[in-house]
Design a protein around this nucleic acid. Structure first.
Lengths: 143, 143
DNA sequence: TTTAGACCTGTGTCCAAGACACAGGTCAAG
DNA sequence: CTTGACCTGTGTCTTGGACACAGGTCTAAA
């Protein structure tokens, strides 16, 4: 399989395949014409990488996992450790997005009503300047 | 006010102040010693930028808003348009994170039970390879 | 007065995960 | 044989700062 066949058969782009190849996570065979061909083993490795990415592992995580496995060791303990870390990070980002989304929605609602105002020397936009965060009980209590 | 005073008084870092200054969003006064001093007008502009960032505007959005306001025009219509776009993006990311988070939690749960396995030529990690996405009714229906 | 150390300066590089560009080589069909 | 679709390597761009580095400046103590 060549690069674009591989990419398209998994719904990704050639840039993604080339990126992993650059990082030596994929090791295609160079043919006489200079083209890269991906044998079945590399195809399944690509599938593995995509699965791992979908589960929130970073590319660097995946490199570590592959490295571990290449020594014949079971990567499972590492995989379990990593996903806990990534999940914790995701959870944090998720909570942050929850707050952000609420603020944005509140702002949009507040702003639909207010009329336009020209800027002044001290004020770029009265909408943004006057936006009131919905007072967050939890936020003000903890810490 | 000098850079570190400005930064710390709003709970940010000098790098952030310097970044906005590099982009000419802040225009400090250069004193004889080469130091930058931020007059009250720039302080309130910094406050404005931070508020806007907190509402999900990109730095580039904020540049556009400032640009608009600097011509004396009311930036309000632009601001309303932009926040709708950003909110839509945020909503999309939010939904994606929701799915990701669920997959990660499911994976973690599945993997707690399974035992370790050494890799084979075709399998880097059986945990990841064998992970089953909880079948997503909606996902398979739409499109 | 000197000196230490805390602050400041500009400039440059780095991060993640690719996306995009570009100049040129290769292949299959007409 | 030419056209056009595909391939190659290499390099730069993106976001929003964070961090580094070499050197200038300020303040207080010795």
């Amino acid at each position: 399989m060549k690069v674009s066949e591989l990419a398209h058969s998994f719904g990704t782009t050639v840039d993604t395949v080339r990126y992993y190849t650059r990082l030596k996570m994929l090791n295609p065979i160079k043919s006489d014409n200079g083209y890269k061909y991906y044998p079945p083993s590399e195809i399944s490795r690509f599938k593995f990488i995509l699965s791992a990415r979908q589960l929130g592992f970073s590319v660097s995580d995946i490199q570590d996992i592959i490295e571990e496995a290449s020594h014949g060791k079971a990567a499972c303990p590492l995989v379990r450790t990593l996903i806990k870390e990534r999940l914790a990070e995701t959870e944090k980002q998720f909570q942050a997005m929850l707050v952000l989304r609420k603020n944005m929605k509140d702002a949009l609602a507040q702003w639909e009503i207010k009329e336009d105002k020209a800027p002044t020397s001290t004020m770029v936009c009265h909408l943004i300047d006057s936006f009131e965060l919905a007072t967050d009980e939890r936020g003000s209590r903890d810490k």
